[in-house]
Design a protein around this nucleic acid. Structure first.
Lengths: 241, 241
DNA sequence: CGACGCGTTGAATGTTGTCAACATCAGTGG
DNA sequence: CCACTGATGTTGACAACATTCAACGCGTCG
């Protein structure tokens, strides 16, 4: 990862993540940097983009958390996945495509338009890897909901978030900022908030994690990862880069 | 959908599906037709491609069913999604990418190498729409597992399969061939085969469906779709084309 | 025939959801 | 400064949903 160019990889989590996915050349990095300077803020709980909208350009998340959400007619809600700094909104879609699910800001959000990768091979690579990772995470979500129990679901999701935030420099040693309520966690995990609450309590009691305010600490991510049997595809893709 | 060219859209479900996604020009259709002539057979239960393999080219499924499967260390199994005639294996991945999950043949399978879309704009469009649909289906699977109960999960999945097979001309009026055991259905739905069995019985009793041998009949797909509150994103994307 | 895969059934158990109440805290306006 | 409000977390009792285990029927195939 070259730091010769004058772009602030360290102060910009999104840029840091993309640089971690593949070697960005100076051009690509400065294109991203320029894009980031034209950023826009979206308030928490606002919709970033609606289901069924037409998508012409992808957005890059610079700061804050968003989520893709589906709401059933009777009010049941499912969070499909979370979008973190360095992730894209609508990157999968081809130009002019319908957006396949609503994206909502979970916190105040800072986004910019993702620069076109057309004349930047290294950006193109970074986008491709980012897409691949987000598919891996969707598949992991399916396995979580289909075959893990409440304890495992919570541990596995927190591990995933930790791995992802680590890439952007936003998690260290099992510690990171988790700006979610137990109810949102429940909506992501296919559980009720009551059950999430109870399960969290046992995870706290047995020393697996602590969570006060918005700071969460996983006592031993490695060990937890092994004990939950968390897959290694993410790591393989990240290292391949 | 032009049928002027000499390509057998009607006898080839895969071609029929792609033609239904977007208007294929004669060149694209004959490229697909040529590719289909160099097909390969894979026996049921064999692995089509292993997780972690390197993917250089996408495969097109001409006949038979496959599935992406994830198996946990302790033997629990989750079917991530099904791949039907006209679907692609490894289309999402960029060249040289790691395959993100094993693909297994559920029946004897006929596949061919998907022709490159580089110099066929209409193929490119078809592939893009196909990718978009498969993402929609992944998101639907997440909602199914996270927020629907056993009855709803079964109905919703069968409706999805019906919609998808309809595009390829393999389902008509709620009737299609379902080459799965109750156990495989359970692995896709995050349930046990015992519970799937019991739930199917009540669905049969109340007249929602019948299933004998491999033929399944949904009595009233429209009504069922409404009663389950099944989303319409698939339809929107298909119509957009 | 026997072995095997698949579907079916019953009884007991375990996991998760529901409902309702209360605790805590931050913010708001009187 | 306090009372009030709303969002979030916590708890208990109970019901609903789903799994487990074990057994048996039925057909196919060697």
């Amino acid at each position: 990862m070259s730091v010769a160019h004058a772009v602030a990889t360290d102060s910009n989590p999104a840029l840091k993540r993309l640089a971690a996915l593949t070697d960005l050349d100076a051009e690509a990095a400065s294109a991203l940097d320029a894009a980031a300077r034209r950023s826009r803020t979206i308030r928490a709980r606002r919709e970033v983009i609606a289901e069924g909208a037409i998508c012409d350009e992808a957005l890059l998340i610079l700061a804050g958390w968003a989520a893709r959400v589906r709401v059933l007619e009777d009010g049941r809600r499912q969070i499909l996945d979370f979008l973190l700094p360095g992730d894209f909104v609508g990157l999968g879609e081809h130009r002019g495509a319908l957006v396949t699910s609503a994206v909502t800001a979970m916190t105040d959000l800072q986004v910019c338009v993702a620069p076109s990768a057309d004349d930047h091979p290294s950006l193109h690579r970074a986008y491709a890897i980012s897409r691949a990772l987000s598919e891996v995470d969707l598949l992991a979500q399916i396995t979580r909901l289909g075959r893990l129990n409440a304890h495992e679901r919570i541990a596995d999701l927190l591990l995933e978030l930790h791995e992802r935030l680590e890439l952007a420099g936003l998690a260290v040693d099992g510690r990171f900022n988790l700006p979610l309520t137990q109810e949102l966690l429940a909506d992501a995990l296919g559980l009720t908030s009551v059950h999430v609450n109870r399960t969290l309590q046992t995870l706290r009691r047995d020393g697996t994690l602590s969570w006060k305010g918005r700071e969460i600490i996983l006592s031993n991510p490695r060990a937890l990862s092994r004990s939950v049997g968390r897959g290694s595809v993410r790591a393989a893709i990240t290292k391949q880069a």
